[in-house]
């Protein structure tokens, strides 16, 4: 799959989610922070985006921790996103 297709698929999965909160956060992250990630971080983000919202939300708001260090880095960035 070429880059544009991959990115568009990721965009769909970031902005057509079950909960509005996650549409907003992941959509904003994709536009602003995703382009600055290392390849390992980018892969970790794709894995996170494939999770269901009620599993992802506790990881973002800090009520659960990810055991994976790269994933934890990406989650910290995700938690720093502000919608305003």
């Amino acid at each position: 799959m070429e880059e544009r297709e991959k990115l568009n698929r990721l965009r769909w999965r970031c902005t057509r989610r079950a909960m509005l909160e996650m549409d907003l956060l992941l959509g904003e992250f994709l536009e602003r922070i995703y382009p600055t990630l290392t390849p390992e971080q980018a892969d970790a983000f794709v894995t996170l985006a494939d999770m269901e919202d009620l599993d992802l939300w506790p990881l973002v708001n800090g009520s659960r921790q990810s055991p994976d260090p790269v994933q934890a880095e990406v989650l910290a960035l995700l938690a720093s996103v502000r919608i305003k």
Binding site: R16, R17, A18, M19, E52
Partner: peptide, 12 residues
């Protein structure tokens, strides 16, 4: 479905 079934808005 536009999304995987268990990602539908009913989740909210």
């Amino acid at each position: 479905s536009k999304v995987f079934p268990t990602r539908s808005h009913t989740v909210a």
